[in-house]
Simulated scan of single mutants.
Amino acid sequence: MTHHFLDIQSLTRALESLSGLTGLHYSLYDDREDLLIAPAREDALLLSIKTHRRGQDLYNDFADRVLKVALKRREPLVVQGPTGQYHIFIPLHYKEITMVALAEAFYASSEDFRKFYRTQGAELGLTTRTMENWFRDVKIVSLKKMEENIKDIQSLLENLIASGYEKREMNKRYQWTKTIINLAANIKSNVSTREIYQTIVDTVVFLFNVDTAAVFSRRDGFFHPEVAGGRRREVLQKLRLSEKNQFISKAYTTKSPVSAIDSHELWHTGFPEEIISMYLFPVYSQLGFFGFLGIFNSLLDKEAFDSVRELCRLSAYLCGARHLG
């Protein structure tokens, strides 16, 4: 799930606005069924039954089961839950993004609530309040009217997702172009090699949502991290890799990127146990070899892979120009 492409603030505001317009409470789930946005406040009846173990189990079983179904669909689902209330599961799709908005909860008639209260109210702890008292907090909406509005709500939310995605893509392209221009502009300046390495690491961590990255240079038969960034940077700062390491040797010999997603193989070749995947990009051009960029615990799509490779080539050229100068 590419959360970094989402405009969470705009989506949160949109869900709050929809809640005000419809009287329902909206939450948002990603394709792993993880909660991305919680409702500003929950339906009073659902909140009450969740305070009881039985009610919580009934609700969780229902929501988990229908959420799995909704993630595989294009059309919204209107489903009655364990309280007899209707819940709306709205699949949202844009490019590789898949999510589900969940709108809760309403009865289609007052009789539906009366029936639930009489048959299950005591079991789920609702009888501490009278039926008539509960009617102040129970939402009753025409099912037909709600179904007529669902497609509009789905379209609105998908448009917001698309807008946020495209805005962030444009910003990513702008920042990428800016990085390349800045590197090129430094060819004749006295920027240090370490500053070039820092630019490489900052760029891949920020633009490509990389977990951890480092640039390694060779000293005394080992490759040491010169600059590290990201979540596991402290682990990498202690690392040194022999030039005989199979991944290092292959990348150096071929002057081509090398990748590995076998954590056991990585551990056996000297990488710490926190590292479970790796890309090694030679920082190499016709002007020389200056080390490796390592990207760890991340997956790169083809566009990102090609962009990082070109960044390493340009950086190597810039490093070479420093030495020639």
Score class of each variant (00 low, 15 high):
Trp176Ala: 13
Phe222Ile: 02
Arg114Asn: 13
Arg53Asn: 06
Ala251Tyr: 05
Val258Thr: 09
Phe223Ala: 04
Phe135Asn: 13
Thr128Cys: 08
Ser263Asp: 10
Pro82Asn: 02
Ala162Ile: 09
Ala38Ser: 12
His87Ser: 13
Lys115Ser: 14
Ala40Ile: 14
Thr130Gly: 15
Glu16Trp: 07
Val258Leu: 04
Thr179Ala: 07
Leu266Ile: 08
Gly325Lys: 12
Ile161Leu: 12
Leu324Ala: 14
Lys238Trp: 02
Ser315Cys: 05
Val191Ala: 14
Ser19His: 10
Met1Glu: 10
Thr193Glu: 11
Arg118Gly: 11
Ser217Ala: 08
Ile150Ser: 08
Leu241Ser: 01
Asp30Ile: 13
Ile276Lys: 15
Arg74Asn: 15
Leu18Trp: 01
Glu16Thr: 11
Phe247Trp: 04
Ala38Asn: 11
His323Tyr: 12
Leu77Tyr: 06
Asp34Ala: 09
Glu123Ala: 10
Ser17Gly: 11
Val227Asn: 02
Glu166Phe: 11
His93Ile: 10
Tyr107Cys: 08
Leu287Tyr: 12
Val141Glu: 11
Ile200Lys: 02
Leu314Ser: 11
Ala44Leu: 13
Ser27Gly: 08
Arg322Gly: 06
Thr177Asn: 15
Phe216Asn: 09
Trp134His: 05
Thr83Ser: 04
Asn171Gly: 12
Phe223Lys: 04
Leu45Cys: 02
Ser192Arg: 07
Arg194Tyr: 08
Leu314Glu: 09
Gly270Lys: 09
Lys255Ala: 09
Tyr107His: 09
Phe290Asp: 04
Glu132Ala: 15
Thr179Tyr: 04
Gly125Asp: 06
Val66Thr: 15
